[in-house]
Design a protein around this nucleic acid. Structure first.
Lengths: 343, 343
DNA sequence: CTGAAAGCGCTAACAC
DNA sequence: GTGTTAGCGCTTTCAG
């Protein structure tokens, strides 16, 4: 129901007593329009409650003012942050965002890509690719649509890419522990299939080696991201390797679980031959994707993962390419920041 | 650079030796097309790598196949879940999602709304409105675009709305504690400005009263959502009200903080005149917006907040309205589920 | 400075 | 079953 009177540029033109092209020029602020006409047109727009149909504008004009995002999983705090940074940067420049999710394994990646193409987006950001790089890239080039990768988990030359510096982050975190006097440091969490984890582990190991510290494969523990699993793994780790003095955790859930594990190990000292000093002795450090407030009471030193900045930078870079898609691709790496806690 | 040859429906028609309308019919699967032609057309599409320009289709056909989402804050896990549920449901039905963020206080709400309208969306979901209901509603009606509220924090009659049942959730949680024998139950967390909190507190209080249990305003503690603040508040609460036996936490961060507070209070028993039995005595319960894995090692009983389902239902409802916008508005309330933990 | 006219790529009546 | 044709609402030369 409702009269549903769609007001078009033609109605505005009639009301203002000018031609449609004049209205169009006023809307886009292009041609040299006399102040008087400008006002008349704007009044008419106001009075009629006209809103310009951007689909039609895009069809004719070529630019849609829309960019597409293919994100791996919005429920992961890192990608949520990234998406927020992206929308902020885009909206401030008058662009809109199409959101699609490629799924954990990237199973819907190509479908998302095609849909976005069909919608006539001016560019695409892929956040968290899982290996489909080559195909995406080829299609994007073919159709001449700018493509920027944000935090992708696989490598490809000659593409634009913004990502967090996982190696540096791990390096900082490990270096911090070492500077505090820790010599026997373990790694807890993440699945071996994760490339992010691989990068972080790389930074971890190289820092140990660099300092001449022992590096034992048994001290690298794989575990799922639940508090329970982390807690169990922690207890187990300490049981078999009582000399460990610090643990680096792959993410915040693992860190929380590790802390609970420590507490339990402390409590169970009698039965297990562990002593209650664990709580004090073992230092915890980790990577934090979540807002800091969610962690600030844990005795944990962490490095931030700059999701929001990755999103913002990706937006900037993509818009540059929208202007000029002949730009040389380049890779941009964002450093993490260390937040120290005194346990 | 790039040949940038846009292939249109006309090219396909030529390649397949048919007319454009035939191609259009094949694309939309509408008219009665002979199997043979169908194949020929599809081959041509395949060969040329044609992708249909949906902007043009929308311009002409009236339906864009796009729905808009105005979400308060993607970084809040509840809204992230909601958004995921929404995209899932929409994508499975061939719709796309425009994402906009209205900001914590809804300061960009109207701008988002207008932008979405200009983009020609078929409908709009507002997730987490903060009071602009009336204006939104009026505009939506005027322009005859379906509008569905998801989890809005203010009330308005005569609108479609999907939301979690905060009252029932609080009722279940409180009832559970009471059934476990708790009589002196406190509330921790949230800001008094939050309507979600108000609803939950309503369920909390009414359940207490219903069971003839004491209800003290001093047992309702307001605090920000950081572990630190929650931990402090918890310690403080127990210090002044040592007889409390259970605490309901407004969200998962507060719950974690409360737990740490308990531990600390236990440790500081000597100095503060509290006894170390707190850890065992005090039961913790709360509302969980985060994935369960992030909480599963806390001695916490929680109720889920069904963000994903709210998103899915909102999508379903909106698509119904897209079909027929004369439907009677109705409010749909989603119950929470209780997850019991034995501490 | 402003208007007239030619489409952007596609769909929806109608013809055949 | 398939082709013809007339636009959807807007931008954009190109004349005045």
């Amino acid at each position: 129901m409702a009269a549903d009177k769609k007001i078009t540029i033609t109605d505005v033109a009639a009301a203002a007593g000018v031609s449609v092209s004049t209205v169009s020029l006023v809307l886009s602020g292009k041609g040299r329009i006399s102040a008087a006409t400008g006002v008349r047109v704007n009044d008419a727009i106001e009075k009629l409650g006209f809103v310009r149909n951007r689909q039609a504008a895009a069809l004719r004009g070529g630019h849609s003012g829309v960019i597409g995002l293919i994100v791996r999983d919005l429920n992961h705090p890192f990608y949520a942050q990234l998406t927020t940074g992206l929308t902020e940067a885009l909206e401030s420049r008058g662009y809109m965002l199409f959101l699609t999710q490629s799924g954990q394994q990237g199973q819907y990646m190509m479908r998302c890509f095609d849909t976005l193409l069909a919608q006539g987006v001016d560019g695409i950001v892929v956040a968290g690719a899982a290996g489909q790089g080559a195909e995406l890239d080829q299609t994007a080039r073919l159709r001449n649509v700018p493509l920027v990768y944000a935090s992708r988990a696989s490598y490809l030359d000659d593409v634009d890419m913004i990502r967090p510096d996982n190696t540096q982050a791990a390096h900082m975190l490990t270096g911090h522990l070492i500077s505090k006097g820790h010599q026997r440091i373990a790694w807890l969490g993440g699945l071996s299939s994760s490339l992010t984890r691989a990068e972080r582990l790389g930074g971890f190991c190289s820092t140990l080696i660099q300092h001449g510290l022992p590096f034992h494969p048994e001290w690298i523990i794989e575990c799922g991201s639940s508090q329970c699993q982390a807690s169990e793994a922690m207890i187990n780790l300490l049981h078999h390797n009582p000399t460990i003095s610090a643990v680096v955790c792959h993410n915040s859930t693992v860190a929380a679980g590790a802390w609970f594990g420590l507490l339990r190990a402390g409590r169970h000292s009698g039965e297990r031959g562990l002593n209650s000093l664990y709580e004090q002795q073992i230092a915890l450090a980790g990577f934090a994707e979540v807002p800091e407030a969610a962690l600030d009471d844990l005795p944990l030193t962490w490095v931030t993962t700059p999701g929001r900045d990755v999103g913002r930078m990706a937006a900037m870079r993509l818009l540059q390419r929208v202007e000029d898609n002949t730009l040389e691709p380049r890779s941009h790496v964002l450093a993490a920041k260390l937040v120290t806690r005194s346990a």
